[in-house]
Computed example of a mutant assay.
Amino acid sequence: MELTWHGHSTWYVDVDGTTMLIDPFFDNPKTSLSPSDVDDPDYLLLTHGHADHIGHAGEFSDATVVATPELAAYVEDEFGLADAVGGMGMNVGGTVELGDAYVTMHRADHTNGANTGYEHGLGMPTGFVVSDTKPTQVADSESTTFYHAGDTGLMTEMRDVIGPFLEPDAAAVPIGDHFTMGPWQAAIAVDWLNVDHAFPMHYDTFPPIEQDPQDFVREVAATGSSAEVHVLEADEPFDLGEALGR
């Protein structure tokens, strides 16, 4: 599994040739790319409807949308993205097979909506657990699993459900504070998730979320977690399978 962070919460994920773009927003200071520079993904995963997460969704019209039914309907109206997984999107708790990948949707603690001159409810904010094997109650030490937490506050489901049952090997967590977790709560999330690798995201895009990611590195260490924190340079691929020795 290859992961590429494009700044903010935008990730490109390649699972054995099945490609996914999560929360496309390239108007951020970390990336040097524009949407046209990115290979067209097979699937477009949208955690929620805030503009800094769907701002460039319309640039990927050939991708199948993976989002809640409410958000899938909204991006169809707003961007003409008519192709949604299952014909209508998916919802929290569900797992869908996408080519060689399996994607499980989990809730995030955040808000949702679109300010376009009217209030449009977009369903629950979410995160995604992406794996190369179907999740079951039988632990699979050979599977490779990545958790994109979306925009979220710290929540006990990370400790009680996502960590022990969905078993992510790696997690991307927001550290910007103000609108999401800051470094210390994000570090607790990493500890609860019991991941081997952690990536900070959703920081430095706007003044309210400017952060030194080394604060996050120190906070993770302070929890006693053995996770390795990677402060990535944007647009540089990270081979998760290789990092896990698989």
Score class of each variant (00 low, 15 high):
G163A: 08
A221K: 08
T223W: 12
D191M: 09
H202D: 14
A114L: 08
I54M: 12
L244S: 05
D23C: 14
T126A: 15
P164I: 08
G86T: 03
D160K: 09
D191W: 01
M158A: 06
D100F: 07
A227D: 12
G224P: 15
V138P: 07
M1N: 04
P168H: 06
A170C: 12
S36W: 01
G93M: 07
T152N: 09
W192Y: 10
E76R: 06
G123H: 01
E97Q: 15
Q211M: 13
T133Y: 10
E236N: 11
E97P: 03
M124L: 11
S36E: 14
G58W: 00
D40S: 14
G127H: 06
P24W: 01
I175K: 00
H6K: 03
F25G: 00
I54V: 15
D140P: 08
N115P: 01
L193C: 02
D160F: 13
H50C: 09
N194S: 12
T223P: 15
P200K: 02
A189T: 06
E97D: 15
Q214Y: 13
E210L: 07
A243P: 12
E70M: 02
A57P: 13
P135D: 04
V161I: 12
W11H: 13
G123Y: 00
T152Y: 01
G87C: 09
F26D: 00
S143H: 05
G17N: 05
D42Q: 10
P213Q: 10
E78A: 15
T4W: 07
G17D: 08
G150C: 06
Y102E: 09
V195C: 03
E210H: 08
D160T: 15
D100C: 09
G182D: 11
L3T: 01
G163Q: 03
Y74C: 08
D16A: 15
P213F: 11
T64S: 08
S34D: 12
R246H: 14
V173W: 00
H6C: 07
T18Q: 11
D109E: 12
G245V: 05
G121L: 05
A82Y: 01
H50L: 14
N115L: 14
I209Y: 05
L33V: 01
G89D: 05
T31S: 15
E157R: 12
F25W: 14
T47V: 11
H110C: 11
Y203P: 00
V231C: 10
D83C: 02
A57M: 06
Q137W: 11
